[in-house]
């Protein structure tokens, strides 16, 4: 099942939280949703789930607005704020009520509590849960209806390393089963290991919507290192081919924005001897920071910098 977002816009008074975004979130892969604080991720997710009314545009799940889904928990599972449970109600009773509202058999409650590791505290009041436990309860709720579409807003928030790894494997497994997984996160190293596709948003607009490999390869911080005794000659040849190149050592050049094969070919044609030709991939974090640098709204001053 596909999530289709078309021209989605949300204004709160004078602020435009989401500005005319269009997306197609495909099944069978994990789509990461990245962006600085306040860039509109949660707002977009709330609109997809029918909680907030778009100012303009539409969000469809499997071709229908969320509100028209019959027993929506069986189609779309979601984790929003972890603490969206009445603190006085037990985890089990919360899930029982959710299950009952969508005609989900009661045995699923025990199953999902087991899956997220909350079986032993199922009868405890949710108000006493730690952040990580609340997060697990939210994930249990998302899985309750065995849905084809899963939407997680910052799921690893508060999870211990074991939990982080567990959720990564869970998301990979859900996508491998052909489900649609849409997940927002600020943890780039985690996303790099989990996502197949990325949507990067800044100030409510889409900055990039591409496979993760493309996002990383497209970063200017993905660089090719060339070591050669004829550095100066090669530098001229590359510059002539309008390739960005810089001297980074006596016999070392760093090239950005070009394919490694192309550099090899140019060196060969120029008769330049190479001692090393290697690629150093940007990390997702570097690629992300570069993409979003112009749209960071809430930046802290660098340490030592006075305000």
């Amino acid at each position: 099942m596909t999530i289709t977002v078309t021209g989605l816009t949300k204004r709160y008074g004078a602020t435009t939280a989401v500005h005319d975004i269009s997306l197609r979130i495909a099944p069978g892969r994990v789509t990461g949703f990245l962006g600085p604080n306040g860039s509109g991720k949660s707002t977009t997710i709330r609109m997809i789930l029918g909680l907030d009314r778009p100012t303009a545009g539409s969000a469809l799940v499997n071709g229908k607005p969320y509100a028209e889904l019959k027993n929506p928990l069986r189609t779309v599972g979601a984790l929003l704020d972890a603490r969206a449970v009445h603190p006085g109600r037990s985890a089990r009773n919360h899930l029982r009520a959710m299950a009952r509202s969508n005609g989900i058999p009661e045995r699923r409650v025990g199953e999902v509590l087991e899956t997220v590791g909350l079986r032993d505290v199922a009868r405890k009041r949710a108000g006493g849960f730690s952040l990580g436990m609340s997060q697990r309860l939210g994930i249990a709720e998302a899985l309750l209806g065995d849905p084809e579409v899963l939407i997680f807003d910052e799921p690893v928030n508060g999870l211990d390393p074991d939990g982080v790894r567990w959720i990564r494997q869970l998301m990979r497994a859900l996508a491998a089963e052909g489900r649609t997984v849409f997940v927002s996160s600020h943890l780039m190293s985690e996303m790099q290991q989990t996502a197949d596709h990325l949507v990067v948003i800044g100030k409510g607009r889409i900055i990039r919507d591409a496979p993760i490999a493309e996002v990383i390869a497209g970063s200017s911080t993905t660089a090719i290192r060339v070591r050669t005794p004829d550095a100066e000659a090669l530098r001229h040849q590359l510059a002539a081919a309008t390739i960005a190149v810089s001297h980074t050592g006596p016999d070392e050049l760093t090239v950005t924005g070009a394919q490694i094969e192309r550099i090899g070919d140019i060196a060969y044609e120029a008769g330049v001897r190479l001692h090393e030709l290697s690629r150093r991939d940007a990390s997702l974090e570097e690629a992300y920071l570069e993409l979003t640098a112009p749209s960071v709204e809430y930046a802290a001053p660098a340490p030592g910098e006075s305000r």
Partner: peptide, 18 residues
Amino acid sequence: TSEYSTGAIRSTLRAVPV
């Protein structure tokens, strides 16, 4: 009102969006 103060209303409306 307890659902609005705790945020549980979002779970409720996701389960029953009508």
